[in-house]
Amino acid sequence: MQALAQTYKDGPYGNADTIVNTRAVFTLRKNARLEETRDVCLDIRSGKELVAVARDTDDLMSYAVGSMIAKLADRGLVKDEMEVFDTLSSTFTKDSFNQADEKRFNRRTVFEHLSLNGLVGKGLSIREAKPAGTLPTISEISRIVENYRKISLDQIQSAARSRDIVDARFIAIWAMRYVCGHSLTYIGEQLGNRDHTSVLNGVNRIVAIRAGDVGKRHEIDNICDESDVLALRRHHAILINQSNVRRLF
């Protein structure tokens, strides 16, 4: 079995995870998504243009996570990006990819994993790890909140105090704080000129909800993840359009 694994070795995460059909019916599964993430990171670190990296990447979340890790490495916020990928390979397996969609292997879950394992500095916010142009806008966040809660941005920004509107407002506050890393003052300005103490109250309320209700925690995380995906798709589409324009000349 060891010799077979060596024969089909094609990357640091290839052996134990590569699907190989042999006479002995050995099955090794390759973690292709994480390998593409690693390649994105290495391409960016080597100086490859972001437009070219986006064009050559098949998976949106591989591009997103790879570019995030590249930024952390460029700023010296991770000591060794290969150590990062070795650690991720033991957690984000082929099976975990199959069990969920792009929202599961994403910048939030990877950043949380790196933080818990001490691979990024203490107190570092996810906003500092995200490349420029990849943060969701208030419009994108409110669109996802409305999909889940049927509450519009106008209602969130209003003075209304009904329970459903307040809950949706708190979720929007949470997303703007922890997906985008915006200041309490900025969030208050964008959500109806509220003072920072009201915004902080919303943040604390969501902390309590996530700690005490697993179902609501998953819903809030999904809203955050889907908002992040909207921003990533917008950013990625801009890069692909730039690539297409260049090909015309």
Rank of each mutant, 00 (worst) to 15 (best):
Q2V: 15
Q2I: 15
A3F: 13
L4T: 07
Q6R: 15
Y8D: 06
Y8R: 07
K9L: 15
P12T: 00
G14D: 12
G14K: 12
A16K: 15
A16E: 15
A16R: 13
D17K: 07
T22Q: 03
A24W: 09
V25K: 14
V25C: 12
F26C: 10
T27D: 14
R29S: 10
K30W: 13
A32P: 03
R33M: 13
E36P: 04
E36V: 03
V40H: 03
V40S: 03
V40E: 00
C41F: 05
L42Y: 13
D43W: 09
S46K: 06
G47D: 03
K48D: 08
A54N: 02
D56T: 09
T57Q: 05
T57V: 04
D58W: 12
M61P: 06
S62C: 06
Y63S: 08
I69M: 02
L72R: 04
R75K: 10
K79C: 11
E81W: 09
E81L: 14
V84H: 04
F85E: 02
S90V: 09
D95G: 03
E102F: 10
V110K: 00
F111D: 01
F111C: 02
L116K: 15
G118W: 06
L119G: 07
V120Q: 05
G121A: 06
K122V: 05
E128R: 13
P131M: 06
A132E: 10
A132C: 04
L135P: 08
T137Q: 05
I138F: 10
I141D: 02
S142P: 03
S142D: 07
R143F: 12
V145W: 01
E146A: 05
S152M: 03
L153A: 07
L153E: 06
Q157S: 08
Q157K: 13
A159N: 09
A160D: 13
S162H: 10
A168H: 00
R169Y: 08
F170P: 13
I173F: 06
M176N: 07
R177V: 02
R177W: 02
R177E: 09
G181I: 04
G181Y: 06
G181M: 04
H182F: 09
Y186T: 11
I187F: 01
I187A: 02
G188P: 01
G192H: 01
N193Y: 08
R194P: 08
H196D: 05
V199R: 00
L200N: 12
N201Y: 15
G202R: 00
G202L: 04
G202D: 03
G202A: 03
N204R: 10
A208H: 07
A211W: 00
A211G: 00
G212A: 00
V214I: 08
I223Y: 02
C224F: 06
E226C: 05
L232P: 05
R234S: 04
H236L: 11
I240C: 01
Q242E: 13
S243D: 10
